[in-house]
Design a protein around this nucleic acid. Sequence first.
DNA 1: CTAAAACCTATGACCAACTCACAGGTCAAA
DNA 2: TTTGACCTGTGAGTTGGTCATAGGTTTTAG
Lengths: 146, 146
Amino acid sequence: MKVKELADAAGVNPDTVRFYTREGLLRPVRNPDNNYQHYDAEDLRRLRFARKSRRLGFSLPEIRQILERADDQHSPCPMVRDVFEHRLAEVEREITELQELRTRMISALSAWQDMPDGTPDGHTICRLIEHWDDPSAPPCCGEQTS
Amino acid sequence: MKVKELADAAGVNPDTVRFYTREGLLRPVRNPDNNYQHYDAEDLRRLRFARKSRRLGFSLPEIRQILERADDQHSPCPMVRDVFEHRLAEVEREITELQELRTRMISALSAWQDMPDGTPDGHTICRLIEHWDDPSAPPCCGEQTS
DNA sequence: CTAAAACCTATGACCAACTCACAGGTCAAA
DNA sequence: TTTGACCTGTGAGTTGGTCATAGGTTTTAG
């Protein structure tokens, strides 16, 4: 398979195939006649694996490591599980943060809507943000509480 | 105030202050004697506003626009509300996506734990990811369903 | 048979929002 | 006076790609 064929087969941009090749995730063979890269079914498997792993939050170095270990006949299992669990914790932390953010945004929005309306006075909105009491802000950073 | 003083007052990296200055969010006055930038209380207000807005998901160009309009005596209100609502929808979409991801990860992890354990066979994990049926993947991208 | 379209190659720039490193200038305290 | 903490601007690195460019190849149509 040539670059575009592989890319189409996996539903990605050809540049992504070239990029992953440069990054060592794919191992094509070069045709000395025309300098073209030649990919096989194994590369397609690797590419699909890589894309799925990306959607799960694995980084490219992590994916490369997994693929390399699989090549070496080592079981990538313990490492994968480790990274996986780590990533799950991260996802849960992100969810919590976003939910808190959402709550704060909705309460701000309702404060907005309770206003005389029209164009409530431009400063009001800025003051809303300015005096936003952000729980995720670092404590003791010189902010005046007045 | 000098760079570090302003940075400390807002709890940010001095490089961030310099960066925001280059980006036009802060308007210091330059001392011709030593070429130092001099920031005032208004800059501190702008910087704090910028940081809070960032945490709400506003981009630097958006923040600059808001600050510029406020300078021009225009009410930034309708624009701010617009961007804000847009951002809220985005946050909610992100939450949903992450929750779905979390569900899929947890079910994969339990499939993991139900295994004979030890080192279950390296290929099993990869197959788990490989055959992951990802609902967020684009449909009809050449993937074989077999 | 030839010309154009569609592909291939490598390299480098660009995105966001910073952060860090570097080299050289300035200023305060010991 | 010298050390250390600060200031300056510039440029590079981060992540995971995407896009542009310039030049070579292959395929397809006329």
